[in-house]
Design a protein around this nucleic acid. Sequence first.
DNA 1: GAGCCCACTTGATCCTGATCAATGTTTCGC
DNA 2: GCGAAACATTGATCAGGATCAAGTGGGCTC
Lengths: 249, 249
Amino acid sequence: MTDTSMKIADKKSCENCPIQHSAVCSRCEPDELRRLEEIKYYRSYEAGQPVIWAGDHMEFVASVVSGIAALSQTLEDGRTQMVGLLLPSDFIGRPGRDSAPFDVTAVTDLTICCFRKKPFEALLVSTPHIGQRLLEMTLDELDSARDWMTILGRKTAREKIASLLAIIARRNAALNKEMPGNGMSFELPLTREAMSDYLGLTLETVSRQISALRKAGVIELDGKRRVVVPSYEALLSETGDDVDGGMIA
Amino acid sequence: MTDTSMKIADKKSCENCPIQHSAVCSRCEPDELRRLEEIKYYRSYEAGQPVIWAGDHMEFVASVVSGIAALSQTLEDGRTQMVGLLLPSDFIGRPGRDSAPFDVTAVTDLTICCFRKKPFEALLVSTPHIGQRLLEMTLDELDSARDWMTILGRKTAREKIASLLAIIARRNAALNKEMPGNGMSFELPLTREAMSDYLGLTLETVSRQISALRKAGVIELDGKRRVVVPSYEALLSETGDDVDGGMIA
DNA sequence: GAGCCCACTTGATCCTGATCAATGTTTCGC
DNA sequence: GCGAAACATTGATCAGGATCAAGTGGGCTC
């Protein structure tokens, strides 16, 4: 926990916080926010650095402010599976539990806003808005974890890659407050290895399938990481998803 | 939604409810419980019957009272993945969302306790205990969804089967308020096909791996469905899980 | 008891993605 | 500019699990 790469940032106000409208604190009244400010502090990590090891005692919960973190799990022989990809405003940790069930690692340079766990748990009971927002966020996480399970359990390597690209494209469009459309482009925030951990593949297979999608004209590459999507429809048709089912309403 | 196999049970009191100590309502004060009773009704389904189709409008949320339900998702060509296994006291549906994102099916004969969605959502805001308990349950679900992702993404067929058997053994022991131990036995609540949907395998592979574990002496079979575990340790060692990591505290 | 259905088992073969290995490309420090 | 290291691509081969195909056994109706 006392990591040399970890830096404690200066106390910042919530006023200019980039995630104030979507994080756990987004529903808070001014006085609730004030109480949160009293128990918060920032931490920053460089890309690749560990944030928490599975089994560690957790003295805080946190929100991702900027950058990307990964939750992952490792089997006895070293095989690892990413089980969560945490973007800005996503929540780390779990009130009411002492030790972390999964490893948390900084995928890119990362800044998080930590809340001391004990007082945060107290706030959860005494003020309704935090708990309500956390419930909403957790239900969303659960839904996307379930979609992810279908990707892991039933999709081919090609479909897995197409699905991941579609997810990143969608999130990226949402970040820019646009609809995903033709000609859109984005930077891949993950290495080939991180993608393989996300999708339950090897990095070689990831590389091959990205090449295959490129050769098929589904995507174009600008360098290793920048992806251009000529036709969003074409990308979606590679994911194997049932376009209707579950999307009617 | 108007299913011929569906039966509406008589109004029952919460007093003798078998799941009263673990369901969403378990934290409720007597007056909160009274308000819940006003908006609840029971439904029963036979094994194999659909409860909800993905995309359906949901006019209720519910708790599983008895029996087992499965959440699942289907790809365009019919491949299906189970993404949730709902046991007694587990929660179905999601406040604040209109249409179901996944199919829900009765795996065994099933009885659920439904709450009309609108008034339930109102209670969620007005009384704190329901939301707090639901948050806790949802966080638990998310943790086990993440373990399940590791099973789907990184484990071999044999490890998948061993993991599923270990999970069922553990739940079964918990139900009887015992610790899982040597010589324990239980009835498999799932068909080979349901197991294959759970684990992202084919039913043939499930059958073969169960036979393999039997031949290796890890389990014994009494008929097709009854499983005896001579050594719980031996079963765990087949799961591929890291016994230490994440379990230190 | 005959016949049927369903859940399951077992066998033979095929194919996708893993594994092992070499090579290419960028970025960085010096 | 050079060498090293990290990241990525591509090739050759292998194997685990899918697929296709029979066959078994228990429980059911008639």
